[in-house]
Design a protein around this nucleic acid. Structure first.
Length: 774
DNA sequence: TTAGTTCAC
């Protein structure tokens, strides 16, 4: 039935009357913390994240063309003296003065580069390679601090270690702890990493150094890959997400004697949650030791967060900061004398200026996204043709997350003789991957950042200025193998005005998962949870409302049994998990886990530049008018029918690795359903059952077509557009539900399914009601 | 007409 003829529209039910006052009342009534009875009283910082205007020209115009660098032109040389607090500065100074002798073995694995953990590790330079491992260990900068660190750990519950990349902290500290007896009596030393690749490669390195089999005394745990032995493993590397998962099983993490949170300065979501949870655990387990390892800033914040000494006697501090030197070569930093308004042009000019004036060495250029990178790459390569006769060519190569693994690999190949390599990268080259041979860094000073607006539940990608910590990290990329130079496309004054560090992910995220998992951990009063940087209250309000509407929380804000408890266990987004939980009723669990797994993986469809037309054509073969979710179902079914063939994927412009990952995730989700006593049921062609099941999770993400061709959300009447990647892009269904909204140039709905409006009131009567318009 | 980067046994 045509919905408009019903003369009805859908109205928001329950949540129209919900305000923050109501929530406040909730809070007083019922939340009680199970781990620690003491509320902190810490204020939550609402509005911590301010949106910056897109592509904000922080600088005004200057033309760099052909101007020399050294003193008499636009760029002036400034030695690297970042305005840091004293202990960090002292460590940096040692770093600068330390002899550029060798590359620490630890640094090889500190920041490995790879797209998937199952791929071969990219080989990196290690001038100590000829030495036996034991001797290499003694050469590390951290070695001379070994006993001091161990002493501090005896004395204090928390040691904050400030150590730059290459100090050896990640590989050495857990070994020192093991040697010093912290792993006696079956106890385990753990070290968490923000990235899967780091966890696996560091574990391999350490197993090597200790001469043991990986998975025995030394192991790692990441999603889908537990390479540990419950009885023999003493040193365990793991992702921070996995460590948090462990708290759900063993809230006091009793088997660990020391937990090291590595790369804490990155302030990822899970790092921040863990830090808060660990603070609680410390109160219950005075014998537990925590090492927070941070590359640069933030050390003071961690120290203050953990130090529970209320006297003025420093001797009674429960936390201490210790700084270590790194093993890096000096990097000269040069700033623009006057700002630029066009950082892309400026960056290209700078690349050529380096090429003409500086000795051999590759260049790494940081921009914000694919569009900018592709433009810069073609500008550089075009102009480089002019150098063809002189034999001194430039070869520009792009790298960003959206490229296939093979395309990414190209930046690791050494440039041909007489050619200088220019790697044009997103933030991916700041921490995730390391390219050897880089001597010059050009830093435009911007990054694309995800932000979250709780009012509309929308995420946006905005271009923002980087932090000083980021700028420093980027500059450091020039000094990995020999002294280098960093050219910052902003003034020194602009650098000084940058924030110390970027806003932690925790403060710019949808908190539904965080709230759900904290509650599963027994922390009822999530608003008063002791966060290192508390998120805005409105983000919590939104998350609590959402979980209530999914029926994961009851009227008292407690997890419902068993629904909410199961929801928290699923390693997927709560909306997705709800869809899975409801799939039994609608008899389509077998199909819905496929869809959930497909949505958990990015870039199923491949669209190589130059073959866009063919790729579109192939995609159309799988497309159905019901929308993207059912299209994904088609793709996966066809993939299985084609026996998971890589060639078949290649021919149909599908990402084989992504689809294999889907198989993996799908199996994992299936295990969860079976554990919850939910048998796998196939819809047997009843696609409507699948669509309805999607609605049971995503009813709040409903939108309807307006006469002008745009869409409006049912909830807030927000204007939305169909994302160009959607199979529904050129169609105009009257009612849709969407998986997510991403605001780039416009607010786009990504991953859509066509629905009947009646389904909303049928499947979510607590949320929607029908109301006559006239 | 479009894409920062991660993570979850």
């Amino acid at each position: 039935m045509e919905s408009q003829t019903l003369r009805t529209c859908l109205m928001v039910g329950v949540f129209g009357i919900w305000g923050e006052a109501q929530l406040g009342a909730w809070e007083e009534m019922l939340f009680e913390e199970s781990l620690s009875p003491k509320a902190t009283g810490r204020e939550t910082g609402e509005g911590c994240l301010r949106k910056r205007p897109a592509a904000a020209p922080a600088f005004c115009l200057v033309n760099l063309a052909g101007l020399p660098f050294d003193g008499n032109g636009v760029l002036e040389g400034v030695h690297w003296t970042p305005p840091l607090n004293t202990y960090v500065r002292s460590s940096l100074l040692t770093q600068l003065t330390s002899q550029p002798g060798t590359v620490a073995p630890g640094s090889n694995v500190d920041r490995e580069s790879e797209q998937e953990a199952d791929r071969a590790v990219i080989a990196q330079y290690n001038s100590n390679e000829g030495l036996p491992l034991a001797q290499q260990r003694l050469k590390l900068p951290i070695y001379k601090n070994r006993n001091h660190i161990l002493y501090l750990l005896e004395k204090c519950q928390v040691v904050v270690i400030v150590a730059p990349t290459g100090s050896g902290k990640t590989t050495q500290l857990p070994q020192y702890l093991h040697e010093a007896g912290w792993t006696a009596d079956g106890r385990v030393v753990a070290c968490t990493q923000p990235r899967r690749v780091a966890a696996t490669t560091v574990a391999m390195r350490v197993a090597d150094e200790m001469g043991v089999v990986l998975g025995q005394q030394v192991g790692y745990t990441i999603r889908f890959d537990d390479c540990t032995d419950s009885t023999t493993t003493r040193i365990k590397y793991m992702t921070d997400g996995m460590m948090f998962r462990e708290t759900l099983v063993d809230p006091l993490l009793t088997k660990y004697s020391v937990i090291m949170i590595d790369e804490a300065h990155e302030r990822t979501l899970y790092t921040d949650i863990l830090v808060g949870v660990l603070k609680k655990i410390l109160k219950k387990r005075p014998e537990l030791r925590i090492i927070i390892s941070s590359a640069t800033l933030d050390a003071e914040a961690f120290y203050e967060f953990f130090n529970s000494n209320e006297t003025r006697d420093k001797e009674q501090d429960t936390a201490v900061i210790m700084s270590l030197e790194g093993r890096m070569f000096p990097v000269d930093v040069l700033y623009l004398k006057t700002p630029t308004s066009d950082y892309i042009t400026s960056s290209v000019e700078t690349v050529f200026a380096i090429h003409e004036r500086e000795p051999l060495g590759d260049i790494l250029l940081f921009l914000t996204g694919r569009e900018e990178i592709d433009m810069a790459v073609s500008l550089i390569n075009e102009r480089s043709a002019e150098y063809a006769r002189s034999g001194k060519q430039l070869n520009a190569l792009p790298i960003y997350g959206g490229l296939t693994f093979e395309e990414q690999l190209r930046v690791f190949e050494p440039a041909p003789r007489e050619t200088r390599k220019v790697v044009v990268a997103t933030n991916i080259a700041e921490a995730s991957i390391t390219i050897e041979g880089i001597s010059y860094v050009v830093d435009a000073g911007f990054v694309k950042l995800r932000t979250y607006d709780p009012r509309t539940d929308m995420e946006s990608l905005i271009i923002a200025t980087i932090s000083r910590a980021s700028a420093q990290q980027r500059a450091g990329r020039a000094g990995r193998t020999r002294p280098g130079k960093a050219f910052r496309l902003y003034t020194e004054a602009a650098f000084d005005a940058l924030p110390d560090s970027s806003v932690p992910e925790m403060q710019r995220s949808n908190l539904a998962t965080v709230v759900l998992q904290l509650k599963a951990l027994g922390i009822e009063n999530v608003l008063h949870f002791d966060f290192l940087s508390p998120p805005p209250v409105s983000n919590f309000t939104k998350a609590l409302e959402l979980l209530y509407s999914l029926k994961a929380l009851d009227d008292y804000g407690r997890l419902t049994m068993p629904f909410g408890v199961h929801l928290a266990e699923f390693p997927v987004d709560p909306l997705l998990a709800t869809m899975l939980m409801n799939s039994l009723k609608l008899k389509c669990s077998d199909d819905v886990i496929t869809i959930a797994a497909m949505l958990s993986v990015q870039s199923i469809f491949v669209s190589p530049s130059g073959q866009k037309g063919e790729a579109e054509e192939e995609k159309r073969k799988f497309s159905v008018e019901e929308g993207d979710h059912i299209t994904y179902l088609n793709v996966f079914t066809a993939f299985l029918k084609a026996s998971r063939s890589p060639k078949w994927c290649f021919n149909h412009f599908l990402n084989h690795k992504s689809l294999l990952r889907v198989v993996n995730i799908r199996n994992q989700l299936r295990r969860y359903l079976l554990r919850f006593n939910m048998p796998l049921l196939s819809c047997n062609g009843d696609i409507d059952a699948v669509r309805k099941c999607i609605v049971t999770g995503y009813f709040s993400h409903a939108a309807r077509l307006k006469p002008d061709g745009t869409y409006a959300t049912v909830l807030h009447d927000r204007v939305l557009h169909i994302h160009p990647n959607s199979v529904l892009f050129k169609r105009a269904p009257a009612w849709v539900i969407y998986h997510e909204v991403v605001e780039t140039t416009k607010p786009f709905m990504r991953d859509l399914t066509v629905i009947e409006p009646e389904w909303l009131t049928e499947l979510a009567p607590h949320f929607y009601e029908l109301k006559a318009v006239r």
